[in-house]
Nucleic acid binder design. Structure first.
Length: 426
RNA sequence: GGAGAGGUGGCUGAGUGGUCGAAAGCAGCGGUUUGCUAAACCGUCGUAGGGGGAAACUUCUACCGGGGGUUCGAAUCCCCCCCUCUCCGCCA
C-alpha cells in the first residue's frame, strides 16, 4: 500500500495514476476521511491525556472521598474515550479499505494503456524462432504422442486444469529447476524451498487478496491459510516485521514452490494444455533492496531471465508492461514472452516470466524496514521475478525442440540432468 | 494431538496493578584517554502517529507476541488465538 500522507499530499497524481491503472479507488473520499481521521485522533489523544492525568492523581489522593471523586471523573472520561475511539476505528477501517485498493504509483517510462495491448516490446533474445519444414505440433499433442502428460488423469483426480507429468516431462521439470537454481546460485542468490501455504495476512501484505469472487487464491477451510500463487508471497513474508541492517542489503533469495491459482474469471482465454493451469512449479527470484537500488535490481532480474532463456536456446521478446496491466503492487514490470510454435495458427509469443519492482508498496504493508543513518527507519524495496515457471517453460521447450520425426531434442543445458539428449517413443 | 514452561527494546535479560517506555548488561553511536590495536571511563541510544519550532529540538498519544476483557489505572489480573522450548503420543 501507499503511504497515507503521500496519498493526501499527492491526491491528483494518485488519482491520475488510478485511472491509468484501471483502479476504481475513491481517492477523494480517502482524502476526506483522512482529514476526519486526524481530527478524531487528536480528540482521542486529548481524552487519553486527561484520563492519564486523573489516573495518576488517584494514587496521590489525600483521602478516600477525594479518591472516589477522581475515580468517578475517570470513569466518565473512559466512556467518552471509548466513544471517540469507536469513531476513530470506524474512520480508520473505511479509509484503510480504500487505501488497500489504491495501486502503486507507476514508473514514468511505463507505457500508459488499459491492457496488454499497450505493452511495449523492448527487445528480442539471442535466438530467432526456429524454422520447421513440417507443420509443428503443439505441446499437448507432443505430450500425448510422447507420453509426457496426462490431462484426463489430472481432471479425474482434481478437475480441469490439473495434470500429471510423466516420464521425461518429470525429468525436464527437475532439470529446469536445477538449471535455474544453478544460474541463480552462481549469482549469489540463497536458494530456498518455501511453504506452499501462507497466512492470509502475508497474502495481503504482498498484495494478494484471498477470498472474494475474483480471487486467484485457494483458501484452506477453517483456517487463515491459503495456497500460495507464487513463492513471491512466502519470500516477501519471510522478513515481514523486521528491521534490516542496510549493510546486509540487497538480500537476494530464490524459492522453489508450487503455485496454485484458481484462474477465476479467465474462462475463454487461450488455455489449452499447460498454458493456464491450477498448479505448477516455479523458481522465483526475490530481492530486498535499498530504495535507490531497486531500479538496477529490476534490470538485473530481467537480464537473468533473458540469460536463462538464451541458455535454453529459446526465442523470446521482452515487453514493458502497460500501466493497466501492472496489477496492484508493481511500479514497473517486464515480461518475457517465449516463442511457442504450436500456439495459435502459426505460433505466438506467450508469457513465460515476469519481473516487478514493487518499490516500498509491499514492504510498507509487511513492515520490512532498514535503519537509516543514526536515527529512524525507512521501508525497503521489494522485487520479484520468475526464473522458471515450469509449465510454461515446458511448452516452450517441447514446441521449439520438436523434430520432423516426432521426437523432441533436449536443450543442451538440460542434458546432464535429463540424462539423455532426445525424447522419443519407438 | 496431550502435559508443562515461556514470549519484554538491535541482542541477552529484570519487572511489585499506579511514580514503567520499561532496571541491568552487550552491541551501536558521540567523546576522553592512548604510539597503534585493545581496554577503561563519560555521554547517548526503541518504533509509529499528532501538536509546536526555520532547525537542533520539544511536547502529547499509542505500542512489553496478537486480539478481547476487568479496572479510575494493566508489561503485571482474566479469556481466546499465534509462536518458541521441554517431555509424551502419533507419523513420511
Amino acid at each position: 500500500m501507499l503511504d497515507r500522507r503521500f496519498v493526501v499530499e499527492h491526491a491528483d497524481a494518485v488519482e491520475q495514476n488510478c485511472q491509468r491503472r484501471g483502479s476504481q479507488a475513491d481517492v477523494r473520499r480517502f482524502v476526506a476521511l483522512e482529514g476526519q481521521r486526524k481530527a478524531a485522533q487528536v480528540e482521542v489523544d486529548e481524552l487519553n491525556r486527561k484520563a492519564n492525568e486523573v489516573s495518576k492523581s488517584i494514587g496521590k489522593a489525600k483521602d478516600a472521598a477525594e479518591r472516589e471523586a477522581r475515580k468517578n471523573e475517570g470513569r466518565e472520561l473512559r466512556e467518552k474515550t471509548v466513544a471517540a475511539q469507536a469513531e476513530l476505528d470506524r474512520l480508520m477501517s473505511e479509509s484503510d479499505a480504500i487505501l488497500r485498493t489504491i495501486p502503486n504509483m507507476s514508473h514514468p517510462e511505463a507505457p500508459v494503456g488499459a491492457d496488454d495491448g499497450s505493452n511495449l516490446e523492448l527487445r528480442h533474445g539471442q535466438h530467432a524462432p526456429p524454422h520447421f519444414d513440417f507443420k509443428p505440433l503443439d505441446h499437448v499433442e507432443l505430450g500425448e504422442r510422447l507420453g509426457l502428460m496426462d490431462f484426463e488423469g489430472g481432471a479425474k483426480v482434481a478437475g480441469h486444469g490439473f495434470y500429471f507429468l510423466k516420464n521425461e516431462a518429470v525429468l525436464l521439470e527437475l532439470a529446469l529447476q536445477r538449471y535455474a537454481l544453478d544460474v541463480l546460485m552462481r549469482e549469489g542468490f540463497t536458494p530456498t524451498i518455501t511453504p506452499d501455504l501462507a497466512r492470509n495476512e502475508i497474502l495481503h501484505g504482498t498484495g494478494y487478496i484471498p477470498r472474494g469472487p475474483e480471487t486467484q487464491i485457494y483458501s484452506i477451510a477453517d483456517s487463515d491459510l491459503s495456497l500460495v500463487a507464487t513463492a513471491e508471497i512466502t519470500l516477501g513474508g519471510l522478513l515481514s516485521g523486521e528491521i534490516l541492517d542496510p549493510a546486509a542489503l540487497p538480500i537476494k533469495l530464490c524459492g522453489i514452490s508450487h503455485c496454485y491459482r484458481t484462474e477465476a474469471g479467465s474462462g475463454g482465454r487461450a488455455a489449452r494444455g499447460l498454458y493456464r493451469v491450477h498448479q505448477f512449479t516455479k523458481v522465483e527470484m526475490f530481492a530486498f533492496t535499498l530504495p535507490d537500488g531497486s531500479e538496477d535490481m529490476l534490470n538485473y532480474f530481467c537480464d537473468l531471465e533473458c540469460q536463462i532463456f538464451d541458455g535454453l536456446g529459446i526465442a523470446y521478446r521482452v515487453v514493458d508492461t502497460a500501466t493497466g496491466d501492472l496489477g496492484g503492487p508493481a511500479y514497473r514490470k517486464f515480461d518475457l514472452e517465449a516463442w511457442m510454435p504450436g500456439r495459435g495458427e502459426k505460433g505466438e509469443y506467450g508469457e513465460v516470466t515476469s519481473t516487478s519492482n514493487c518499490t516500498d508498496y509491499q514492504a510498507r504493508r509487511l513492515a520490512i524496514r532498514y535503519r537509516t543513518g543514526e536515527k529512524g527507519t525507512a521501508f525497503v524495496h521489494t522485487l520479484n521475478g520468475t526464473a522458471i515457471a515450469i509449465s510454461r517453460a515446458l511448452i516452450a521447450v517441447l514446441e521449439n525442440y520438436q523434430q520432423a520425426d516426432g521426437s523432441v531434442l533436449v536443450p543442451e543445458v538440460l542434458r546432464k540432468w535429463v540424462g539423455k539428449d532426445r525424447i522419443a517413443r519407438d
